[in-house]
Design a protein around this nucleic acid. Structure first.
Lengths: 204, 204
DNA sequence: TATAAAGTGAACATCACTGTATGACTTAGC
DNA sequence: GCTAAGTCATACAGTGATGTTCACTTTATA
């Protein structure tokens, strides 16, 4: 299972090739989810056969590219402070997170075609857990509503970020406004019924 | 442009075939966005050549299927009363609309692969216009926030409905709760900053 | 009922991608 | 510098989809 890297110690140039392939895969699939392995190999500056020397199938390549993107994302999210006022913490998460979603948008589309849904979910477990604990804390502190399941709220947050990325790609939203709109929308959506919606300055 | 039906008067059996093909396309593509034209023709109880007699390309078939789905949706939405209290009107829209989204989910996925983005948008113009005027009215009456663009709010509504459909398909949400969750989420998201979020009873 | 439109399967030509093999060449690492 | 690991170009086999042509049969409709 996984790539062909069993337990053997790889040579330096092999590792370099693998890295180039994964990187090229992320770029190519990011532009076109249907990019062929030939294209990816070419973009990586590597022969198609070499690609097959390291990956057994297309799915493995896509998986590796997606895993890499997620790992990168996790590194970025690690730097985000999610403590303190839940509202501000969520705003900080959005600020960092929506950008990641924007970058990985097309790659995710490719992954959704090639990988089983469970695997996609598995890969997202890290980011999802972060938001989940943040939302749980916000609920406990009375900042967020408790009349909706946490899973649904997590889903709403990611969905809205994702759709913002699509809107930008379609030219109906600018990068400048994205984070503000997302934050204003989600914070309102998370506000407990009966209490006033916070002002976020996510204006027009 | 469009299908091969130029201006000639079609014979009854031809019309029947076309209808069967479009219907089969909607069903097949709904189950598997990559369904081949052979599959669709077989499902329609029609020869593959016959399919090509009526449609010049795969794209035309997909377009026809999607158009049909949208038309059906518009018919349903025509029966929804969008007058009166904007909050209640929106709730009624969600109640009817999320179901449509749920049904057309996979078909839409197929259309997004095959059709240019502009065409998809064009097809959605009808439903989008409805929501747009409803939201505009709600804003004018002070029921909805005015600090976010209408286009964004329309997008949020549809995105949340769409994601609910995905959640159901993934088994993380039941049909019973869907409308309630969507309504509770969107109404809160649309509430003007500074005013309390309405209670919708969209509980856990 | 005559006839033109429509439907049919089978076959054909392309095309692109996947995955595998081969043998020669290059390079990392001890 | 020797050896094993890695790379490469080319070639091949297999698959599955798209469109098209053909000769023939069925059926709607005037």
């Amino acid at each position: 299972m996984g790539s062909k890297n069993s337990t053997a110690t790889k040579r330096a140039d092999a590792l370099r090739s693998i890295d180039a392939i994964v990187q090229a895969a992320a770029e190519c699939l990011g532009q076109n989810p249907e990019a062929s392995l030939s294209e990816i190999a070419r973009a990586a500056g590597v022969g198609r056969v070499t690609l097959y020397a390291h990956f057994n199938s297309r799915a493995e390549v896509v998986d590796a590219a997606m895993s890499r993107a997620i790992d990168r994302g996790n590194e970025v999210l690690d730097t985000v402070d999610l403590t303190g006022d839940p509202l501000l913490a969520l705003a900080r998460y959005v600020e960092a997170g929506w950008h990641l979603v924007d970058q990985a948008r097309a790659l995710l589309a490719a992954a959704q075609r090639e990988l089983p849904a469970g695997r996609i979910r598995e890969l997202h477990a890290g980011p999802a857990a972060r938001v989940e604990t943040l939302i749980a804390r916000g609920r406990a502190e009375g900042a967020f509503r408790t009349d909706l399941p946490i899973a649904w709220m997590v889903n709403v947050l990611h969905t809205v970020m994702h759709s913002a990325a699509e809107e930008i790609r379609a030219g109906r939203l600018t990068h400048d406004h994205a984070a503000g709109h997302i934050t204003a929308t989600v914070l309102a959506a998370f506000t407990p019924p009966g209490t006033p919606v916070p002002e976020t300055g996510g204006g027009v």
